[in-house]
Every structure is written in structure tokens, then in C-alpha cells.
Design a protein around this nucleic acid. Structure first.
Lengths: 184, 184
DNA sequence: GACAAAAAACCGAACGTTTGGTATCTTTGG
DNA sequence: CCAAAGATACCAAACGTTCGGTTTTTTGTC
């Protein structure tokens, strides 16, 4: 795997792998484990190959964070659109995106987001701005549901930290109920 | 440590500074900024001074994390003890400890905890075990209050990430009400 | 299509810096 | 004087980055 010299060139696949493995390593082992060396090796290229795709390590970080935001944003928008009930649609989407991590490494999405965010003051602000924008966008339908959203944050945080939740299923349905009009 | 008063220089102050500044730097700038040089310089000593108090960087980290756990544990126990209402006393304490960050660097407590935890799988497990222990300890009085605790986690996370909360005051009182028997 | 030129993709080694750690001095206070 | 407290000097390893070279793919021309 070390000789990417002589294999089929698939630059966008390599770029994808670099981003994915960076996210995975960050989620699994923390930001200190995300070195150019480790990410490159995991993606099957050398550091030189890394540099070709990203001018610097920071560029990789920024691109990854932006992509995470984009993925989450898309997933949220999709769920809002198919929700027949307008009231609390955004909060419900936020909840479902976190809970329903059916896809493969979608758990890593939130873990990576958190790890990157907590280790870069700039990214914290980026997140805050991004989230406030969505919040303002849905201010009419999702008023007074802050508790549910906060509990949702606590949910993926507990997933990351490894604190198990008894009755996770039941807890989620209760949270969903809280987002519906008139309490139910 | 035998002679408590009339110390010679003030080594315990230096040790304290090392721990405090490590926590502050971690909370403010992430784990990557927590180098022994940075911590030492912030505490007003050189690396040599650092080494005298902590045999390694990991020792500093472990001591800090353990201290954070201890501080939180003490604060929780205190609040539980003075709470006249048994039902939900632990969850209320958890909530109040997070909300009532009267002391100056108590915001840093949770931020440091999160930063350290998310960057060391071992510490994640330590936290999970620690939290589960408390949870089991108060399982009779704090059953079915997971939502409030999760929302509390979301609360300090929003503090760290910089997402402002409208009606923070009102939101906290609502959360407290949820911990009281009979809903409110 | 053939085929050379150009561009893209990637390697591999080296660079200068910073990291955590160690070993050796010097100062301080009782 | 003497041990604790800390400074200074140094080390090997790892870090991110730079750069010239090599291989693959695309492009331009006939």
C-alpha cells in the first residue's frame, strides 16, 4: 500500500480517504493522534502525497470541519423537509440526526466535530455562528425547545464519553414527544 | 507534605499554578496548546521546575483530571447534602454545579474536563466509570431524570462552544422544576 | 489512433522546529 | 552545611513543511 506510485491514480478517492481517516482518528484517539504522518499512512499515501491534496495540516482540518458542518446541515434540511409537522421540525431533525446514526461512521461525525471544535477556538466560533444561523432560520417553529436540543447534545456527548444510557429508545421517543405541539 | 505551615519557598503554590494553568490553557486553546513549556512558562517556572513537581506530562494530566473529578464530586456531594428534597437531589446538584459557576475558573472545570476526556480514550473510560458510580449511588432518588442531566451536559457544552442561550435563567428554573416530584 | 508534451499525482529524503524527557548545575532557606 | 527548589543545557524523537525527482494521466497535434 506504500507504493501508490504504481497503482491506479484516483485523486479524489485519496482525498476522501485523507478526510475520512482524519475524522476517524480524531474521534477515536483525540486530536493529538491526528498527525500528517498518521493520516497519510492510514490513507495509503506518504506525507508528500498529503501535501499534494492539502497545502497544510490546518487546511485539512478546516476542510474536514466544513465538510462535517455541510453533512449535518444537509441531513437536517432533508429531515425538516419530509416532516409533516412544522412545529419543532428542526429540533426533531436535530434529534433524529444524532440518534439515527444508521450510516457507518456517522457516530464519528459528532465525535470529530467535538474534538476539532474543542481544540480550535476559531472552529468553536464557526460552529456557534453556524448553529445560530440555523436556529434563527427556524425560530418560529422551534421556539421553547432549547431543552430538547440541549438534551440532544448531551446525548451524543454521552455516546462519545461512553456513558451508557438505560432506556435510550424510550428516552428518545420522550424527547420527540416534547417537540410535538401541545406536549404530545 | 508533613510540615503544613511555614514552608520554605512555596512549592505547593507552584504546583497549584501548574495545574491551574494547564487547565486554563486546555480550556482556552485545546489540548495541543498544553505543552510542558507553555504550562511551565504560564506558571512562572522553567521545564526544570515542572519536572520537579511532575515526573512527566502524563502525570500532570492524570493529576489534573483526577482533581477535576474530585472537585466536581465534592461540589455535588455538598449540594446533595443540603438539599431538603431527596427526589432528584443528585440531578439538581449536577445541574446547579454546572449552572452556578460562581467561582472564577469553574467554567474551565468542565471545559478542561471535556478537552482532556475527548483526547484520551483512557480518560473517557475513567469519566464513564466515575459518572456511572454516582449514578448508581443515587439510582433510587434520581430515576427517570436522564433528560435533565443530558440537557445539563448540553448546557456546559453550549457554554464552551459559545452558542448563546436565550432565557438561560428561565431554562434552568424549568430544568430544576423537572427534577422536583410530581413534575412541578 | 499515434505520440510527444504537459500536467497531475505521488514519492522519499531532508529541513528546521518543537516536543517531552534527562542530566547537571546553581540558588534558596532553615 | 545541606537538602529542597529551580535553572540551564542538552538529547533523541516526532512534528509540519519544503522540494526535487518519478510515475501516471491527460492534453494537444497530426
Amino acid at each position: 500500500m506504500a507504493n501508490a506510485h504504481k497503482r491506479r491514480k484516483q485523486p479524489e478517492v485519496v482525498r476522501r480517504n485523507l478526510l475520512d481517516h482524519a475524522a476517524r482518528i480524531a474521534a477515536e484517539s483525540g486530536i493529538t493522534a491526528v498527525t500528517v504522518q498518521a493520516v497519510s499512512a492510514a490513507a495509503g499515501v506518504t506525507k508528500g502525497g498529503f501535501t499534494h491534496h492539502f497545502p497544510s495540516k490546518q487546511a485539512l482540518m478546516d476542510a474536514l470541519f466544513q465538510e462535517l458542518l455541510n453533512d449535518i446541515g444537509t441531513a437536517l434540511a432533508e429531515r425538516v423537509q419530509v416532516d409533516p409537522e412544522p412545529h419543532g421540525a428542526f429540533t426533531r431533525a436535530y434529534l433524529n440526526v444524532v440518534v439515527n446514526r444508521d450510516s457507518d461512521e456517522k457516530l464519528n461525525t459528532w465525535a470529530s466535530l467535538a474534538v476539532l471544535m474543542l481544540n480550535d477556538p476559531d472552529l468553536r466560533k464557526t460552529w456557534a455562528d453556524w448553529f445560530l444561523l440555523r436556529l434563527d432560520q427556524y425560530r418560529e417553529t422551534d421556539i421553547d425547545l432549547a431543552i430538547v436540543r440541549l438534551a440532544t447534545d448531551g446525548l451524543w456527548l454521552s455516546d462519545i464519553s461512553g456513558v451508557p444510557l438505560p432506556d435510550r429508545e424510550q428516552l428518545c421517543t420522550r424527547l420527540v414527544q416534547l417537540t410535538l405541539p401541545r406536549g404530545r
